[in-house]
Design a protein around this nucleic acid. Structure first.
Length: 1006
RNA sequence: GGGCCUGUAGCUCAGUUGGUUAGAGCACACGCCUGAUAAGCGUGAGGUCGGCAGUUCGAGUCUGCCUGGGCCCA
């Protein structure tokens, strides 16, 4: 292979003085001319103390310490307040103070910090007070566990001590989580963080509760609620989870006492999975749309190992559709349909009536839509105290008395004949949560009474407590509710119902993403009255008195005020510890019952706006934004909506932003048992919080997002790219002074193009931050760094930056544009990557206070340049053909560096050729020289093109109008700038430009 | 079981009102440079757009069903 013209390996060796350190000048005893000096010192290489590798795990804590020292958040606010900036309020949804932070917390607080910092950047005065949710069952449960560990029963511990321990426990985790959130770089009013257990908060929550009492929105209902006997408490829907569970099933006969001739003498058959509710039975429900008949048993199945309870001659009433199933369960081989039955007005006797007078009452049949013929017998055993449907059908038929059958431990009350004291569930010891003796006892008695038709077992989905994992039961207890559907005659509600006010508030709220509105609306439309009472210890109390005669809450503003004052001073404990006379004043203590229930924790969290956004300086109610996970449509968004609508007639927020959940790398839910969790603390220790932040910025947070090893690696790569871009600019701008800045009309085309891109990005970044789409900040900026800066601008201007005289226009223009770029990059990215942008800013301006104090720099409209934008698109297309040709020659070992080439570039398309007007093609292609033109118009080029050049030269199908031929650059290599030009000669081996630059360099140092 | 959402290269994401051969960045392979060097530049490979069926001249885009995943609820 012949080397290309002008390529002399020997000289190539000379041309790299920087690598010839070990080679003594004299040892190369040949005749090749030697450069007279090493020009390296005259080259303006980038210089910066900003290291390539960040060392974030060490660097971040230093930056945090400085921010802390500067009191950064308050410093920014003070700055904005001095400038009269508009206020923006992001109200923090409180995490529960019972454990270390996980990746979901990290994502959420990071997103919140993006909001806070970007609003600061946009020029707002931002109020953000982090908070914690402290009351509630999970913490109580932890403390009970601790007590058990010490061998103490809960009963042995005073309520006051118990509450103190809960308070200490929550305080501990607030501290831990606070450190975790701060470490992520989250800024806010940490010193004045709120907590629902603060005395002032507890007082405010109780005051909010009093508003509901005063406006008549509260009532005491006797209603079946989900009840956990193990925890002795009512549970909210959110505190219940469903698991498979094996229950006994029974088919029970209710002899008909009133009804048609055919019906009398027959028995209505019901099927249930909760035999223990039979003593509470008061009715049987049927559906008017279902056909029922009397059937007579004719023959029992043979070969059974036991005596079936059914016998020939038995007359049973069931749904026609289900008769086969029922007969099969009863081991009946043959049966006959007697006649259809109209259930209207029928009455049965209780199946235990013949065992005890207690059960001697009529059991009416009631029509209800909740009855189906999918399974069972077509009849539903109805115990108004133990099921929501049961309760409703019972009430709907005009009944008022709800039997109370089991006590808070889930044991039958003493008045329940045959079963007094028996427990539905075991509540203590190793068997806690297992079914107790109630079911078997009831089944035994049914057999004894001759009313059991059949029995079995069934595995089905059954509600369990989310905390104890024990099954729950429906139990009729007195509870306090907030009405959803009664017109409220307050100033705020103006005769609307709470549901109406809440639905109107939803319409008035902006949702990001928009689907959130449907989601919360459908929930509010259908939700039942708000059950707010809990029979627990750790929470804010329903601090009120009930008149024993009228059963109505005492409404006296002075009493309420005394209660709130006492709680403000001593916490909720005041309600439990102080004598009632302290609160009641002139009222007769004998006449009033003190309510000791505590409030649903959702009422606490629903009230956070009241004690955070009101009566504090520099904030406002309502908040501009609430930001939480999408599960909070049922949680905090809704509790806040209801609480605020009930007391203030509207939502406490103008907008709601939701994010999805964080999955593992395969899109699966994270769980400790699967071992696929990502611990934010580990990521911070190994890579830095900045990596978590970039991850949060790059994902589509509205959807569920993934995180794992690969994804974090990709994130780190993106970080490195951004960091190196910044670093290069810092190096290039090390000695830049505004004096050398170049005016726009003096700028070369490349600089104008970059300014145009800055203008374009400025609009994109502002719009993206306005609408909280952080992805649309980091992705375009990252692409800009990669494509426009690193691969184009920096790569082309390297030559000018390193080799041109400092006063050269191109070099000055390039540095001016880099300066403008640095100004904007460090601002645009500061909300997302505050650590690195702070480091960069302070590297450039060591005397500056903090990058975080800045607002977005204004970008002049004159920077917009559509001509340069389309020009460079065409230039880039031509460039791909040039690099394509060089790549082919490189593989053929004909060329190495692009500077060895002087390509012939023939462009047949007028537009593309004209795009090069005013450009130096060699500079653009980063070659030493270049000839470019259209051979059809240019005789010189035509002469150089061999016949049939189109077929012989390199061309890409996607840029069909461009043909390129590599030709070795002729001339010696300039020892300073490495270009090969004919003008370079011994002994200096410098091109004209470098000769001049070196002279200037020497003169400056003379 | 019901409601809502979701599935485009290994990863993160673009893909206009349906309209050429589905794109970008990173990662990967190969090469160049050795004056951004644990960096920089270039070239390349990589996708049945979750699957099936339909509407249409034409479907990643519209419709239905199925399937994987998620949240909420029962």
């Amino acid at each position: 292979m012949t080397p290309p013209d002008g390529f002399d390996p020997a000289r190539a060796g000379f041309s790299r003085p920087s690598r010839s350190r070990a080679r003594p000048e004299s040892s190369m005893a040949d005749d090749a001319p030697t450069p007279t000096r090493d020009y390296r010192e005259t080259v303006f290489l980038p210089e910066t103390p900003f290291p390539m590798r960040a060392g974030l795990p060490q660097k971040e804590p230093q930056i945090l310490a400085k921010w802390d020292e500067q009191n950064l958040y308050h410093a920014i606010r003070a700055d904005r307040q001095r400038a009269g900036a508009p206020l923006f309020v992001l109200h923090d949804g409180p995490p529960y103070a019972n454990g270390a932070i996980h990746i979901g917390h990290a994502l959420q607080k990071t997103l919140k910090d993006f909001v806070v910092r970007s609003r600061f950047l946009l020029g707002y005065d931002v109020d953000f007070v982090p908070g914690w949710d402290c009351h509630g069952l999970p913490i109580e449960w932890k403390i009970e566990e601790e007590l058990r560990g010490q061998g103490r029963r809960k009963d042995e511990v005073s309520k006051a001590e118990f509450r103190t321990r809960c308070r200490e426990y929550a305080a501990h985790w607030i501290d831990v989580q606070c450190q975790g959130f701060k470490r992520l770089g989250v800024i806010g009013d940490w010193e004045n963080r709120y907590a629902t257990m603060d005395f002032a908060s507890e007082a405010a929550i109780v005051a909010e509760f009093h508003k509901f009492v005063a406006s008549g929105q509260l009532y005491r209902g006797s209603k079946p609620v989900m009840w956990s006997p193990v925890e002795r408490t009512a549970l909210a829907d959110a505190e219940v989870e469903y698991h498979d569970h094996v229950s006994p099933t029974v088919w029970v006969k209710f002899p008909v006492t009133e009804g048609s001739d055919a019906a009398r003498g027959a028995s209505v058959v019901i099927w249930t999975t909760t035999p223990w509710t039979i003593p509470a039975n008061r009715a049987i429900s049927y559906n008017e749309a279902i056909a029922y008949s009397v059937y007579v048993v004719e023959q029992i199945q043979g070969g059974l190992e036991f005596e079936p309870w059914a016998a020939p001659g038995d007359r049973l009433i069931v749904a026609d559709k289900l008769v086969a199933d029922v007969m099969d369960a009863a081991k009946v081989a043959k049966y006959r349909r007697v006649e259809p039955v109209d259930c209207q007005g029928m009455v049965c006797e209780h199946p235990l009536a013949n065992l005890d007078p207690h059960y001697q009452f009529g059991v009416p049949l009631l029509a209800g839509d909740h009855v189906t013929d999918d399974a069972g017998t077509g009849f539903v055993h109805t115990a108004p105290g133990h099921g929501a449907d049961d309760y409703m059908v019972w009430i709907a038929h005009g009944h008022r008395e709800i039997p109370e059958t089991v006590d808070p431990d889930g044991a039958y009350y003493p008045h329940v004949a045959l079963f007094a004291g028996l427990k539905v569930l075991e509540t203590e010891g190793k068997k806690a949560g297992k079914f107790g003796p109630a079911n078997p006892a009831v089944i035994e008695k049914l057999i004894e009474a001759g009313r059991l038709l059949a029995r079995g077992r069934l595995e089905h989905s059954y509600p369990h407590s989310w905390r104890s994992k024990a099954p729950v039961i429906f139990r009729n207890t007195p509870q306090w509710f907030i009405r959803m559907d009664e017109p409220v005659e307050t100033k705020e509600l103006g005769g609307r119902t709470l549901r109406e006010a809440a639905l109107e508030a939803i319409e008035a709220t902006a949702f990001y993403p928009a689907q959130g509105k449907n989601r919360i609306r459908s929930m509010v439309e259908s939700r039942p009255d708000w059950l707010i009472s809990r029979q627990r210890a750790w929470g804010a109390p329903l601090a009120m008195f009930v008149d024993k005669e009228t059963n109505q809450p005492l409404h006296d503003p002075e009493v309420d005020a005394r209660i709130v004052e006492a709680i403000k001073a001593e916490g909720a404990d005041a309600w439990f510890n102080r004598p009632v006379t302290d609160f009641l004043g002139p009222h007769d203590p004998e006449r009033y019952e003190k309510v000791e229930d505590i409030l649903d924790v959702w009422f606490d969290s629903g009230s956070t706006h009241a004690f955070t956004l009101e009566n504090r300086a520099h904030t406002k109610w309502p908040a501009d934004l609430y930001l939480e996970g999408s599960d909070q449509h049922r949680g905090w968004f809704q509790s806040s909506l209801l609480e605020s609508s009930g007391t203030r007639g509207r939502a406490p927020y103008d907008a709601i932003l939701t994010h999805g959940f964080t999955m593992d790398e395969n899109g699966e839910k994270m769980s400790k048992s699967k071992g696929n969790t990502v611990d934010p603390e580990v990521v911070i220790r190994e890579s830095g919080a900045e990596i978590i932040r970039i991850w949060a910025a790059m994902i589509d947070y509205a959807d569920d997002s993934r995180i794992g090893k690969t994804i974090l690696q990709t994130t780190s790569d993106a970080y490195r790219k951004l960091r190196n871009t910044i670093r290069y600019m810092l190096g290039a701008l090390a000695d830049f002074s505004p004096d050398e800045a170049v005016e726009l009309d003096q700028m070369p085309p490349l600089e104008r193009f970059i300014l145009h891109r800055l203008w374009e990005l400025d609009g994109q970044v502002r719009a993206a931050y306005e609408s909280y789409v952080f992805q649309d900040v980091i992705r375009p900026v990252l692409d800009f760094c990669q494509e426009d800066l690193s691969a184009l601008f920096f790569d082309i201007r390297k030559d000018s930056l390193y080799c041109d005289r400092p006063d050269h226009l191109t070099r000055r223009a390039a540095r001016t544009v880099m300066h403008e770029t640095f100004e904007r990059l460090t601002a645009w990215l500061s909300p997302l990557m505050p650590f690195t942008m702070e480091e960069a800013w302070l590297t450039r301006f060591p005397q500056a206070h903090s990058n975080c104090l800045r607002t977005l720099p204004q970008t002049p409209g004159e920077w917009r340049n559509d001509y340069e934008s389309s020009r460079w698109a065409k230039v880039k297309a031509v460039t791909t053909v040039v690099t394509g040709e060089l790549e082919i020659k490189r593989q053929a070992k004909e060329v190495g560096a692009a500077l060895e080439s002087n390509p012939l570039v023939q462009i047949l398309d007028r537009d593309s050729l004209e795009a090069f007007e005013g450009l130096n093609p060699a500079e653009v292609f980063r070659t030493s020289d270049c000839e470019l033109g259209n051979p059809d118009w240019d005789d010189h080029l035509a002469a150089q093109a061999p016949a049939g050049y189109l077929s012989k030269q390199f061309n890409r199908p996607d840029v069909g109008h461009v043909y390129v031929t590599h030709r070795a650059a002729s001339g010696e290599k300039c020892e300073r700038c490495r270009r090969r030009l004919p003008e370079v000669t011994a002994p200096k081996f410098l091109c004209v430009r470098c000769d001049d630059a070196v002279a200037a360099w020497d003169a400056a140092r003379a």
